[in-house]
Design a protein around this nucleic acid. Structure first.
Length: 631
DNA sequence: TTAGGGTTAG
């Protein structure tokens, strides 16, 4: 294709022009506004303000500095227009999310400026179509490519794959693969886009495993680069997926052997490795990758923090937040704080959580919705409903369905069913659609507060008026509500009417309820199903064993304990903990190892006495098998 | 001047 010639002399003939081009290339690489403005001023000083190559570069440079309006001024001051100027401005609009302006300019190219769109124009439009998820525009460009014979342009075809990957069309992976299959020439990016599409669509429309794509790459002699690796690693299954997780390790070995990317200096690849090992519960391997990195950015630190939190290493996660500032001088951002807040919850470390909140306020990032949601969750789980509510009330315009769900669940957790229902009603009145987690939150709140009628009414209304399909978790809440209120027959009737096979959580709810209400027939039924569904879960045996022991049925207890022994089942004893003056105190059931044990049990005995006096129905309190060990 | 990668809340 013949390109329009630029106005003015060539860079080789004019050293000033060459110098300015180099300066503008540097402005583009560094995204420096100062350098862009200085270069812009120089174009006037040297009488090159209307040189179209410089103008094109200036349009791109101002766009990268997030000033597309400046790009437009440059465009207007250069005549006649050519494809370079138009494409640069269309790209500036697309990159700065000004999609309608990009489309307007595209339509003006032929009508107003007498410029024909080219492959670069189409590439920009494919990016726009992808961002807008506009398949009509995307398919129009596809037709243009087919008509003009640009199918041999592998970069443009890669843009087409990218568009189909973003838009999805119901055919999912198939559309992307079709473009890939029909490409006369492929680049490594074509393979990377294919793998990326596999990740987006989970391989639907593709019968094989992602490993088959990698194997094809090997057969065709295409090596993996940093992009390939960081696209593949998130697809490696964690052990909980029930599949082998060797693939991630194989990729890691490949990275080390071939020094993919820049090996330990490739932050992207290392972050993906940390994430892969963390998901595989191999936090030691994740830590080794992190320690071996030659330089770490905020994402790397946050990856490692997340890895620690997901693997129960809460103290280490909090330590990393301090260390990232001291060692690398990197301040945590909103994502880092969101990642570490669950560590405060799991340690019940209210003060640490509050310090993180204060830090977010100081750094003026506390308004971010995700961070506020994480703060609500942390405060509720650390026992401060008031602080959670303060964050919730801060700005009613910065609330999404998760914000509401968290606050409803917080009231449920703290036994305030009335407020949970009140908030749920308000949420519906404001037109915010509840999702399954909101529903579980409000039903659990009803259950905990003993609000059977209210809970059942909410459930019925959601199914009848909102057309919500009950999930196993929602059904489990209903069984729990009915069971705890003593309506065991109704709970069983509900289980039998469920549109799917009841899972362990449903039978578990019935088992707990039948133990509370001493219904041995229902208890044995629930236990039978539960152990059938989860034969290796020790909790299912322990709960029954405790009940049988309390009623003196020692033969049955011995049977259960020997079954557990035969199957090698061990259950870690439950543990509670509390942080007092930054010191953690933990307690097991009937634990008397704490130095203040005599005092603690004295206070506990007094509490039991007070409850007994207030509620005579608790006369058999200290004979209760679940509480007897405390006294 | 056109394509592809990493961390986050219930």
């Amino acid at each position: 294709m013949v390109r329009p010639s630029h106005v003015g002399v060539s860079p080789a003939q004019n050293p000033h022009l060459l110098h300015l081009l180099q300066a503008l290339n540097l402005s583009i690489t560094t995204k420096s506004l100062l350098l862009t403005q200085q270069s812009h001023a120089q174009t006037y000083r040297l009488g090159l303000a209307h040189h179209s190559i410089l103008a094109t570069k200036l349009i791109s440079a101002y766009s990268l500095c997030k000033l597309p309006s400046h790009s437009l001024l440059i465009f207007h001051s250069n005549n006649p227009k050519n494809a370079f100027l138009c494409n640069a401005l269309i790209n500036a609009y697309v990159d700065n999310l000004r999609y309608p302006d990009a489309l307007t300019l595209f339509s003006q190219m032929g009508t107003q400026y007498d410029v024909s769109p080219d492959d670069y124009t189409m590439s920009a439009l494919l990016k726009l179509a992808g961002e807008l998820r506009d398949l009509v525009i995307g398919k129009s460009v596809h037709s243009w490519i087919a008509k003009t014979g640009f199918v041999s342009d592998s970069i443009l075809m890669n843009s087409l794959m990218s568009m189909y990957r973003k838009c999805g069309s119901g055919s999912g992976f198939e559309d992307v693969r079709k473009v890939f299959d029909e490409m006369p020439q492929r680049t490594l990016s074509s393979w990377n886009l294919l793998i990326s599409a596999y990740g987006v669509y989970g391989g639907s429309g593709f019968s094989g495993d992602v490993r088959e794509i990698v194997e094809r790459m090997r057969i065709e002699g295409v090596g993996l680069d940093g992009y390939t690796v960081s696209t593949l690693l998130p697809l490696c299954p964690a052990p909980s997926d029930g599949r082998r997780c060797d693939f991630g390790r194989e990729i890691h070995c490949y990275v080390l052997r071939r020094n993919v990317g820049l090996g330990s200096a490739d932050v992207h690849v290392c972050c993906c490795l940390i994430d892969m090992y963390s998901r595989a519960k191999n936090v030691v391997a994740a830590w080794n990758v992190f320690d071996g990195m030659s330089s770490r950015n905020i994402v790397a630190w946050t990856c490692m923090i997340t890895g620690c939190v997901h693997n129960g290493l809460s103290e280490k996660a909090l330590m990393l937040v301090r260390k990232m500032q001291v060692v690398d001088g990197i301040e945590p951002n909103a994502v880092s704080l969101i990642s570490v807040l669950p560590a405060c919850s799991s340690l019940c470390s209210f003060m640490e959580g509050k310090q993180i909140h204060a830090f977010a306020i100081r750094k003026e990032i506390s308004y971010a919705m995700s961070l506020r949601n994480a703060l609500i969750d942390m405060y509720a789980k650390c026992g401060s409903l008031d602080c959670a509510r303060k964050v919730f009330d801060e700005d009613q315009h910065v609330r999404d369905s998760i914000t509401w769900s968290l606050m409803i669940a917080a009231y449920g957790l703290h036994g305030d069913g009335d407020e949970a229902i009140y908030l749920f009603d308000n949420m519906l009145k404001l037109g915010i659609e509840p999702d399954n987690i909101t529903i579980v939150g409000v039903l659990s709140a009803c259950c905990r507060s003993g609000f059977l009628r209210e809970g059942i009414n909410i459930y019925k209304s959601l199914v009848m008026d909102f057309g919500i399909s009950p999930t196993p978790e929602i059904c489990s809440c209903v069984v729990d509500m009915l069971g705890r209120s003593g309506q065991l027959d109704r709970a069983l009737e509900f289980i039998n009417s469920m549109p799917f096979d009841p899972g362990a959580n449903v039978w578990g709810a019935l088992l707990d309820a039948s133990i509370i209400h001493d219904n041995s027939e229902m208890r044995d039924l629930a236990h039978k199903f539960l152990t059938h569904l989860e034969p290796e879960n020790p909790s299912n045996y322990i709960s029954l064993s405790n009940v049988l022991a309390s009623s003196g049925k020692w033969d049955a207890v011995i049977d259960i304990r020997s079954t557990m022994k035969d199957r090698g089942m061990n259950k870690l004893p439950g543990c509670s903990w509390i942080s007092i003056n930054s010191e953690m105190h933990s307690f097991y059931v009937a634990d008397k190892n704490h130095p203040f044990s005599p005092l603690i049990y004295e206070v506990l005995d007094n509490l039991f006495l007070t409850i007994k006096e207030s509620f005579p129905c608790f006369d058999n309190f200290d004979e209760d098998p679940l509480l007897g060990s405390c006294g």
